[in-house]
Design a protein around this nucleic acid. Structure first.
Lengths: 108, 108
DNA sequence: TCCATGATTCAAAGATACATGAAATATCGA
DNA sequence: TCGATATTTCATGTATCTTTGAATCATGGA
């Protein structure tokens, strides 16, 4: 992962509202959640949530697909795994031996 | 780690300039680096760097101590370990079994 | 086709963040 | 104390972010 992508991902998550949204999507698992359901659950206006999701999708942390009238959003677990690996490799002490532990057994 | 602290840390790192600064401090290890040296190495004006360091310190990611005429900054490795643990616990799939691997062997 | 539902886009306003020159503060040595 | 070095603070202008109401777009059913 390049530094620009890492910074974009960190910025996207560095907003309490978006972090709440992302965490809710993580709990929803790969099946994801429709935008409307998500809006009700996290207590955001539909347009506000749409803006937050746009940032998360643009950063690569979330994917979307249309399902009938709904648009279903899901956490991109592989992207988060890559981000965590970046932090471990670049932002930790003596981290050379760790990534395999995280990436291999971790998430995705 | 609380969500507010996590968001603040992610925001602090979600800025390419600050991420570069933080990575340089990580490479410097626990001994840290003086502000002036850091400014020269990352190519930032002293006052600009000072502002970036202020954000990182406020987020808890970096510590500072005065050493003579210099102020030495160092990465707070334990804080980063906590942040990574937060991401693994809250933002990953089936992460229940993982944190010990990271926190125990990881960094700090 | 027409309507209802689900979601996004647009525009505008207010709030924050960013970088920078100039000034101020802190420390040390002469 | 005086000057030099190291760093921070302040003030400023600019840019970006965030939210929200209103309008628009997309889909499916009658």
């Amino acid at each position: 992962m390049e530094i620009k992508s890492a910074a974009a991902s960190l910025t996207a998550l560095g907003h309490e509202g978006r972090l709440v949204v992302y965490r809710r999507l993580v709990r929803a698992g790969p099946a994801g959640l429709a935008a409307g359901v998500l809006a009700r659950e996290v207590g955001l206006a539909p347009n506000t949530l749409s803006a937050s999701l746009k940032v998360l999708v643009h950063a690569g942390l979330v994917t979307s697909r249309r399902d009938g009238r709904s648009v279903v959003y899901a956490a991109a677990f592989d992207h988060m795994a890559t981000l965590i690996a970046y932090l471990v490799e670049n932002c930790c002490l003596e981290a050379i031996a760790l990534p395999s532990c995280i990436v291999a057994e971790g998430m995705s």
